[in-house]
Each structure stands twice: as C-alpha cells, then as structure tokens.
Nucleic acid binder design. Sequence first.
DNA 1: GATGAATGAGTATTCATTCAT
DNA 2: CATGAATGAATACTCATTCAT
Lengths: 192, 192, 192, 192
Amino acid sequence: MAKLQKSIEKRNALIQATISLVNNNGFHATPMSKIAKMANVSPATIYLYFENKQDLLNKVYIEVKQAFTSYVFTNYTPDTPVADGFKLIWNRIADFKLKEMEEALFLAQCDNTPIIDETSRQEGLIHLQPLLDLWKRGQEEGILKPMSPYLLYAYSINPLSFLMVMQNRGAFKLNEETLEEAFQAAWNSISI
Amino acid sequence: MAKLQKSIEKRNALIQATISLVNNNGFHATPMSKIAKMANVSPATIYLYFENKQDLLNKVYIEVKQAFTSYVFTNYTPDTPVADGFKLIWNRIADFKLKEMEEALFLAQCDNTPIIDETSRQEGLIHLQPLLDLWKRGQEEGILKPMSPYLLYAYSINPLSFLMVMQNRGAFKLNEETLEEAFQAAWNSISI
Amino acid sequence: MAKLQKSIEKRNALIQATISLVNNNGFHATPMSKIAKMANVSPATIYLYFENKQDLLNKVYIEVKQAFTSYVFTNYTPDTPVADGFKLIWNRIADFKLKEMEEALFLAQCDNTPIIDETSRQEGLIHLQPLLDLWKRGQEEGILKPMSPYLLYAYSINPLSFLMVMQNRGAFKLNEETLEEAFQAAWNSISI
Amino acid sequence: MAKLQKSIEKRNALIQATISLVNNNGFHATPMSKIAKMANVSPATIYLYFENKQDLLNKVYIEVKQAFTSYVFTNYTPDTPVADGFKLIWNRIADFKLKEMEEALFLAQCDNTPIIDETSRQEGLIHLQPLLDLWKRGQEEGILKPMSPYLLYAYSINPLSFLMVMQNRGAFKLNEETLEEAFQAAWNSISI
DNA sequence: GATGAATGAGTATTCATTCAT
DNA sequence: CATGAATGAATACTCATTCAT
C-alpha cells in the first residue's frame, strides 16, 4: 500500500517536473536528467514509468488535458440552459487557467507545437464533447451562430489561452473586471 | 554585386530552411546541420550570417514578424475610418496567414513557446502600433469597447492563428464563407 | 525437499536461459534482465545463485563443459582398443553436438571469445584427460601420428564444431552419410 | 591530397583499434570511446567514417576478410596442378594466420559469434571461390574425396584457426615442424 | 567568403547490481 | 528465499560550434 502510494507520488513528481521545466525552458532545453533531478529520482527511474522522452511528454499532455476537461465540466449537466451552461463552462475554463496556470501554459505550448504525437493530440480532444453538444443545442435553439465549432472555439474559448500567456509574461492582468470583459467579448462573438 | 546578391540569397535560403524545418519538426528536432543541408550551404557558413543558433532563430522571428506587419499595413493610412480600417487590416492579416502559411505557422509556434528571446519578442511587437492607434481612435469615437488592447487582440486577431493551425492540421477549412463568419465574430466581439 | 528441488530448477532455468540468449544474441546483447525474464525469476534472484554476470557465465561454461565430457566418455573404459575407443568417443562427441546443439553452440562461442575467465577455461579442460590418454596409447602403439595433442584435437575433434555451426546456419547438413565422411577424414588425418 | 591521406589514415587507425580491442576484450567490452582513444580521435569522429557501432564492426570484418583472401590467392593461378595449388594456398593461409595474427584472431571471433550481420558474413565468403574451384577440380581428377566443400574446409582449413587460437593462448607453438605436421594431417584428411 | 572535417560537451537510454520488504 | 523498485555508472550517439585550408 505504502509502496503503491510512493510509486504514484513519484510518477506525479515526474509529471510536475516535466510541466514546469518545459514551460520555463521549452522541450528542447529540458533534458531527462533535469526532470529527474527536479523530481528527486535517478534518470533511470523515469524509464520505469515512461517508455522514453516522447512517451513521457505524450502522457503528461493527455493527463493534463484530462484534468482540464474534468475540471471544466464539473457541475455542468447536459440539461442546463444553453446560455447558463456556456457561462458555467466558460468560467470553469477561465478558473482553470488562472488557478492551474502551469498546466494551462503547458497545454498552450503543446497545442501550438509539433512536439506531441498526433494520436495523443486526438486522445486529448475527445473529452471536449459536452461543449460541442452544448453548442449544437444552442444553434438548434437559434441562440448561437450557425458556425463550425472550430470558429466557436477560436472566438469564445481560445482567446483565454492567449490572455493567460500574456498575463504570464507580465503584460496583462486577468482580474474580475477583465474577465467580465472577456466573457462579454466571447459571448458577443458567438451569439446571434 | 553578384557576390552581394549571392550572399543575400544564401541568407534567405537559411531563413526559409529554418522556418520550414522548425514548422515540421519543432525547434528541438531542427539541428543546424539540417538547416545547412536544406539551404545548400556548409554548417560553418551559417555562422557567417548568424552568431549562433539562438541568434538565427531570433533574427528569423524578427524578420518574419516585420514581413507580417509590413504586409498587414500596406494600403492602410491612419486617416481611414475606424470600421473600414479595421476591416482592411483584418483582411490583410487573414490574407497573410493564408498566403504565407509557413511564415504564419512559424510565428504561431514562436509566440507560444519560450524559444525566442524576450528582447526579440519585444522588437517584433513595436510595428503593430498602427493597429493599436486605430483601436484607440475607435474607442474614442465610441465604436469599440473600452477594453485593454490585449483583449481586443485576443478576440479579434488571435483567433485567426488558431484557425490557421487547425487548417494546417486538416481539421478546418478557411474559405470565403468561413472567413466572413470569422470577421463577423471578430467585429461583434470588440465593437459596441 | 520440495524447496531444494525448486531451487535447483530455478538455477537450471537460469542456466538454460543464459545459453539460449547468448547463442541467439551474443553475450553483448544478453542483459541480466532478459535472462531473469526468460527464467521466470526476478533479476535480483540471479544474485542468489551467482555472484555476478561474469560468474554466471563462467559457471554455465563449466557445467556445460562437464555435461559434455561426461556424455562423451560414457561407455568408454581405458582398456578399449585405441581404434574402437576413438571411434566410440568421436561418435559420442558428434552425438552430443547433434542432440544438445544449444549447449554445443554455446561452448563453441565461448571457446573462440574472451568472455570466459582463463581459470574457468582451464577447469573445463581437465575432464578431457581420458581422450588424451587414449591418444598417448595410440601413439605408443604406433597407430597414431606422434603429434601434439593440440594437432590431434584440431584435426579430429574440432572440425565437428565448425560443421555444427555451419549446420546451425543452415548451410550444411550433418546426417549419417556426412558423419561417416567426417569420421573418415578425422581418422585419416591423425592415423598413420 | 594530404587531407585525403589523413582521412584514410584515420579510418585505418579506427579499424586497427577495433580489431585490437575486440580481440582483447570482446565486442561487449569494447566501447566506442576506447576505440576512439586508441585511434587518437574524438568519439564523434568515428561517426564520420561509420554509421554506428554495428556498421563499424561489419565494415572491419569485411575488409579484414578481403585482406585475408587477397593475401591467400596471391601467386595462385587456376591452372596450377591441384596438389601444388592446395599446398600453395594452404601455406598462404597459415602464413597469414602467423603474420597477421591480430586480423586472423578477429576473424575467428567473428566467425563463431552472432556479432556480424548475416549479409556482411555472406559478403566475406564470396572471395573464397578460387579454393572451391580448386577442390572441384581435384575431385574431378579423383585426387580429393568427393565430399561437401564444408567438410573439406572443416578438415583442411579450419583447424588452422583452432591452432592459432591455441598458440595465442600460449598453449601451443606453430613452427616449421608443427606446420608440416598440420599440412600432412590436412592433406590426409581430404585426399583419396 | 566558404567549407568540410573535427570535436567537446552533452543527451537519451541501458544495465548490472542492490536493498527494503 | 524471493522480489520489484531503484539507481549510479556507463554507453552509443548527436550536435552546436570551430578551424585549417
């Protein structure tokens, strides 16, 4: 029991170290040895938990993406009215990006870079379905513009990533006021 | 003259090779030797034009960014009415992302990654001033929401990057129709 | 008793695994972990039976060599006439190489390679004495050429190793006919 | 010109170092770094001349084998009478094993071990054809036993490898007398 | 200017071996 | 006895950079 516990902790430490180092230095400047050191294990130990560096990265990506979607859809049920549902989900996304900035930044980097395997990328996408369903419902009800979900995502969700990156670089501050402005912009862009 | 010409051509070949390789393989999988090979020069030759790999990357970034802004503001004059001016600029940006996809993808990767020096990043920003001025004018005229330019950018400009990346991955198609939808979403998000 | 039995079985499994893996992949590509896996034990268990990898290899060599000589001299008694005795022993050697090919191939590889300690090699040799005695007798009786036993061995015994390796590589077939030819060649080379 | 010369010298130094180290320590205990050190180059330099460790080994094997066969058939012409021809070739083989012991030992190790690629092994064989032709002629003339060339090789040629290994281990001495005995044994084993 | 050969300093990965359980 | 997890010490191989020509 204690052993399993320790094993899980080590794996998590590796994942956290990877996120942190890739965020700060980029994938190309994140050697396995540094990850090991930050996680307080030997480099060889990484290979007990992950097949190789690419596998480590893929697995971290998938798990962070799952944590993200899991966080996002907490409290949401498919019978929530469209406008309320969208606001709920949007706020959870914003919350996640603010509270789990490391994870969110990591995702942003992976999503704009060819460092993740295509299959892992796909695997990360499937859990977004409830949002797509919500949008479809909104379109059927005539509340949302009849556009491709990619457009809906590009204008209502993705901007948060940009804003978070800017906040991380110290150029911009996400607070109650700017978040409200952001939500209005998001809603205006997709609602009829 | 012929010599200078050849020199410039070599430099351009190096820049193009860097863009192409970083796009396809990521920075971490783009060795100098490959760049040299693709540009048909010796690895040593790179160091006649750039100080080192980081310098090469920074310079490529800055030049591509300049090409981008230069393209974007062609035909635009500061006395254009706000709505027309925004539409003009927005369309040029969309144009660039469609016609110079390699360059645009490269910028998207650099902008979400810690591979570019902060100073180079700043240098890439300064040429965006005309757009910021336009927005300020629009806000003074009560046409645009009185938000931070970061918010304006996040919602009216940045989504195009996301859409382009998606198009590049084969998931989405930017055509006359979707571009029009995109523009409406952009305008709705920032206009009062 | 059952415990001792199991212990012996494990040790044998380790020896067999070592032989098989070294034969197929060579010593350099035979990690302890693979040996353990093939023998269905933990890597750590190997060290309960052998001091280290070198010791494992030496012990395997010695035991296989003993199995070989023991097999070879079964039914042979020192009072057998020289010609009969040689034929008897030669046939047993040929038999062993055909029936215990794994073991024989392992010996061939060890005998031509610096992977076995010199002392272990010596230890493997001592049990060949009956053959040396037979040869001495044959020379005293004027039946065998008065040559160094190394020459006798090189021409009458060692060729079987070569033929077995060739058969293992699929290039040659040892059957009743070729074995008879081989024996004639062997006998012709050493008899007066 | 001087550059090409140096290049060839470096390559040869690498080959010699490989032979020497593999002979003394075995393939498994011959790291690239040691080979580099012995050849007075950087480890990275090896990879300018050979693709990887396996390629290095294969190439060394092939070149040594070619040197061997080339040495062996010097002075031999296909019209030499069978007995004379065999004696000539046999002596050259013995000569090579005595004078180029390092090379010969290396071949012996490679020939009894799965460290060489099968294709490289095949490539090493093709140059032995003149000997096979000689044997065929001898069989047609009724001088040699009508056996498989593998048997002829096993009994008339291969024993020299064994004797050389023994001499290298200090157990046996190849001199004029023992060489003559060896030749007689070889000839007796294959001649009618 | 231009180059190709050369390399030192890494880097991912492996593996023999140990040790707490 | 037996083990699986852990690791330090290699090891093959890469790559940004240099330098003699």
